[in-house]
Design a protein around this nucleic acid. Structure first.
Length: 552
RNA sequence: GGUCCCAUCGUCUAAUGGUUAGGACAUCACCCUUUCACGGUGGUAAUAUGGGUUCGAGUCCCGUUGGGAUCACCA
């Protein structure tokens, strides 16, 4: 069923370079033993899935760990789904996570690497050259079936219990002769190009998956579409040509591709090309109503990588979490080597899990708390500032005005302290936690204070506030301050601790030292819980302390 | 429904066919504590199920069940 040059030119147009010319421009890569060439190939839909970053991280590690090449290729052959500026968004997202690709587009004009272009829409002629070649060799054929005809076919297939698809006796256009093709063309019918699957009887074939080992699949007998009616290739064909020309050694991609693996292997075989090694990564899942499902772009905001930026999770945290999902011994490595990062860790693709891991925010938050606790106040300030610039202009302004004050706040129980607090896990949660340091945000009424202190009488609360103002000396050391509060409490009818109260019921204690401290805490912070009160008072300043104590 | 993938604590996972089935997060208890955190010690908690192979099975084989993916002119 080889087609003549004339009809192929009519189908595909003229002036397309020959495959020989193309092959010459893409010499095989000079790789030494073990060097891997990987790529990620997202489509620019204006959305970067967490799973894409996961796959990118794995691909990047496999390439760079072997001293190989990591590429970015933009798969924009679906013009319907394409979103303006989405490629830049992908490039930026990879940059945000320090996932550096060696070859690929840098922006809409420039790219690095000599196996480009790395944007599929710019490779249209390359695909078309191969399509022409296939048509001439009879490896592919034009199909004039309309959408309605295909739908009707599928319906009949499902009714009769048959397997849906364009194959065997259902492949109506498979054996059109040149006269028939010409007649369709003359009638102005739109067409697609289909691959002519060489399979007549389906045998099980063994395929080696890098992640899963040897697996068995039925051979592909579907005449799948390789070029759409807009003359752009489908994924199956584009990836075949690109990964061949670009010298990809390992295709590490989402699990959803596993079922088309026999097709892809077949495509390479038909061309006589060496297929890359394939590895399929199980999708990240989430729990909804006790049921697991793949993280959904539409339903789950956390599927979008932008979510993590907006919330202000440090980039290292997201990467560490994903690395931990990929190889769970990573966390042991980081614990043993706190100064190293994921690039120092030996990632093992065969240790990748084969079921879909569940996205666990509690674990992510734990990793984040641990990570943020390693930051100095200055480092945390810088990160918070960078986040505020993007997501919270009011906070940015406030930080500009009071940068020193901010640093002191962030330094509480962080600098000069053995055990750092671990209560921040994302930038967006920091300011709400420290609002009370700012007078504009501090709106506490006397009534609020009494409500927060239900176990003391109003008179007692007022007495503590009134007397303590005179006692307070900002020059006191922490020990002196501490001793003073204690002494004051004991002298005014409060017990040392709860045990004391139960031990001596006849004393009729009003409460404990802790209760007295809580009165001060509530007056100064508006809360019953806070970080170390002495540090807060030092940072907040004498003037504020006095005025807040005088509220009631 | 067809095809394919997967199955160890709640979660992520470790265990050359021989371990008391280990670790981390979460959880619980206790300790530390002037609150909340932090920190310390300890505990609860798993091989989906039925067969087989084997002296011995989480591990190998078959079935069942359950979960997932996929069946486009989307990638």
């Amino acid at each position: 069923m080889a087609l003549s040059d004339e009809i192929v030119d009519r189908l595909m147009g003229e002036g397309i370079p020959s495959v020989e010319e193309i092959e010459k421009k893409y010499p095989p890569r000079m790789l030494s033993e073990g060097q891997c060439v990987t790529r990620i190939a997202p489509s620019p839909t204006g959305f970067m899935h967490l799973g894409s970053v996961y796959a990118a991280l794995i691909s990047e590690r496999v390439a760079h760990q072997s001293g190989g090449v990591f590429m970015l290729r933009i798969e924009d052959t679906d013009t319907k789904r394409e979103v303006e500026g989405a490629a830049e968004f992908i490039i930026k997202a990879l940059g945000d996570f320090d996932l550096k690709f060696d070859e690929g587009p840098l922006n809409d004009k420039q790219e690095v690497g000599s196996y480009g272009p790395y944007v599929q829409s710019q490779r249209k002629e390359i695909y078309q050259a191969y399509i022409k070649e296939w048509l001439k060799k009879g490896l592919a054929y034009p199909c004039f079936c309309s959408e309605e005809e295909i739908d009707a076919m599928r319906e009949r297939q499902s009714k009769t219990g048959g397997r849906p698809g364009y194959y065997g006796m259902w492949a109506k256009c498979r054996n059109l002769n040149e006269e028939q093709i010409k007649a369709n063309l003359d009638a102005g019918k739109p067409f697609v190009i289909r691959f002519r699957s060489p399979v007549k009887y389906m045998y099980k074939i063994a395929i080696e998956d890098v992640c899963r080992g040897k697996r068995f699949f039925p051979e592909n007998d579907l005449d799948i579409v390789i070029m759409k009616s807009d003359k752009l290739p489908t994924y199956h064909f584009a990836h075949l040509v690109d990964d061949h020309l670009m010298g990809t050694t390992h295709v590490l991609r989402g699990d959803e591709w596993l079922s088309s693996l026999p097709l892809h292997i077949q495509l390479f075989q038909v061309m006589g090309w060496n297929p890359p090694k394939y590895g399929h990564i199980a999708p990240i899942q989430k729990l909804e109503d006790e049921a697991r499902r793949k993280l959904s772009k539409r339903k789950d905001p956390e599927a979008n990588i932008a979510f993590y930026g907006e919330k202000g999770y440090p980039k290292e945290v997201v990467i560490n979490y994903l690395m931990n999902l990929a190889n769970s011994d990573f966390e042991d490595f980081i614990r043993a080597n706190p100064d190293k990062n994921y690039r120092d860790f030996e990632f093992k693709i065969e240790r990748l899990n084969n079921s879909g891991p569940l996205l666990d925010f509690v674990k992510l938050e734990n990793i984040s708390k641990e990570f943020i606790a390693t930051l100095s106040a200055d480092e945390l300030y810088d990160r918070l500032y960078d986040w505020a610039v993007k997501y919270d202009r009011n906070l940015q302004k406030l930080m500009d005005e009071k940068s020193n004050y901010f640093k002191q706040i962030l330094n509480i129980e962080r600098g000069n302290c053995d055990r750092v607090r671990k209560d921040y896990y994302m930038m967006s949660a920091i300011y709400p936690e420290i609002k009370y340091f700012f007078d504009d945000e501090f709106k506490l009424t006397a009534e609020d204070v009494f409500e927060l202190l239900p176990n003391l009488s109003r008179d007692d609360v007022k007495f503590i506030a009134d007397e303590y103002v005179n006692l307070y000396n900002p020059a006191d050391s922490k020990e002196e301050w501490f001793a003073k509060v204690k002494e004051f409490a004991l002298a005014n009818g409060y017990a040392k601790n709860a045990k004391e109260i139960t031990k001596n019921p006849e004393m009729a204690y009003k409460g404990t030292v802790s209760d007295v401290a809580t009165v001060l805490r509530v007056l100064i912070t508006g809360r019953r819980e806070s970080p170390d009160l002495y540090s807060i008072m030092q940072v907040i300043g004498n003037e504020r302390v006095i005025s807040r104590l005088k509220l009631i």
